[in-house]
Nucleic acid binder design. Structure first.
Lengths: 227, 227
DNA sequence: CCGATTTAGCGTATGGGATACGCATAAAAG
DNA sequence: CTTTTATGCGTATCCCATACGCTAAATCGG
């Protein structure tokens, strides 16, 4: 038998509690003291199971992601597009996920499962293994970047609604000197930035879809140019 | 005349000093006390010119980016590819740029100049204004995400070299159950993750180039499908 | 059953950080 | 020279992460 007092909590419990706090009040609310209180323990008790707060964050990062959903029927493009949207949705459900300072390449089971899912989508595609990874990495980078953007803007919007409502285009018109930046001025004049309603879900979602479309189009072109 | 004591410093000075600290010792070293010390002032003096540390970070974000370089000759693809690499290089020169929690859409002059530069690259391309913005946003998202990835891994690498050296593939082999994740296992077996030398510049640079290639390919396909 | 050993829980203390508050001081106005 | 106003900044508060060492529980060898 193992000697010594029996542990009453373990790292997984701590991680769970920390995630609960982050879900409820954001990542900023996750302090060792707050998590300990959540569990009914003393702050320093946590350090028996977790070396540092950074390690706790890494653990949270590993277990935050949910299971990837099963891929739909269809060709690789349907599947990969679905995958990208699923990633976005999963991240949106845990907005603090992207705020964790990442520590290295994925090794948690959930993250690997997502990777496997994306590679499964490319199963029947005639690409080299290295190319497949490149495709998935690139797509993943895009999705995470977009998720970050959406999360940030949504957050800034909540903090001060009305700041974006159609004032952004106006503000740009004031700042931008058409002589110095003609290309930008032209686009501004076209009214692209005059979002008169919400910057929220619709427009940003459309941006995401368009970027995704471009990327998948590129993958298709690459495949075609290859065979 | 303006009444009251004359200010000896202003927000721009503070921002400059903060950037100097970040350049030299990283964003984590930027505290109000540290910046004040750098300027030979007392900590609380800064608060006369900057509402909060968050505001200081926003100011840093606005002035961190350098001027965009002039675009090369060539077609839109050369120009946009050059632009993307220039963005990456600029960010790599200030790794802390991406660590700043962003606050909203770009409004600083430098950031707008980069946007203008990208739109200039698309000048002669037959796309709607909204589509151009979509292209630039998507590309920008990709580049920033990739830059973040590279920065993070490089940082983790410095912290513990040898951890990645060809052990990553090995570790994955141990973790991944080929029965549960066949697609991933296949790629692992192909040796894609057995980076025997450095995870650094070369491989990551290649990933970046490939992703960029895919995206630009997608833009080209979209243009073609449009006209 | 008893002391030795090992390990978990945790109280206390330290050092840092952001920032509210108010005082003293400098500069212009009258 | 006095009043007004804005600046520089000392002090103090509150929140964090975390090192250290004590105490208590559980097992082991006798």
């Amino acid at each position: 038998m193992k000697r010594g007092r029996k542990p009453t909590i373990d790292a997984a419990d701590i991680t769970r509690a920390a995630i609960a706090v982050a879900d409820a009040e954001g990542l900023a609310a996750v302090s060792m003291a707050r998590v300990a209180q959540e569990m009914g323990n003393a702050t320093m008790a946590l350090y028996r199971h977790v070396k540092s707060k950074d390690e706790l964050l890494a653990l949270m990062w590993d277990s935050a992601m949910e299971e990837p959903p099963p891929l739909p029927d269809g060709d690789w493009r349907d599947k990969l597009g679905f995958w990208a949207k699923a990633v976005l949705a999963a991240i949106r459900r845990r907005p603090w996920f992207l705020q964790i300072p990442i520590s290295g390449p994925p090794s948690g089971p959930k993250n690997l499962a997502w990777l496997d899912s994306a590679l499964t989508a490319l199963e029947d595609v005639p690409l080299e293994p290295g190319e497949k990874i490149g495709v998935v990495m690139g797509l993943s980078t895009f999705v995470q970047g977009e998720a970050r953007l959406i999360g940030t803007l949504a957050q800034g919007f909540e903090a001060d609604p009305g700041r974006f409502n159609h004032q952004y285009g106006q503000r740009l018109r004031e700042i931008v000197d058409p002589g110095a930046m003609p290309a930008l001025a032209e686009i501004i004049e076209a009214g692209v930035f005059d979002l008169d309603d919400v910057v929220r879900a619709e427009d940003l979602g459309a941006d995401f879809d368009f970027g995704l479309h471009l990327f998948l189009e590129g993958v298709a072109a690459h495949i075609k140019g290859r065979s």
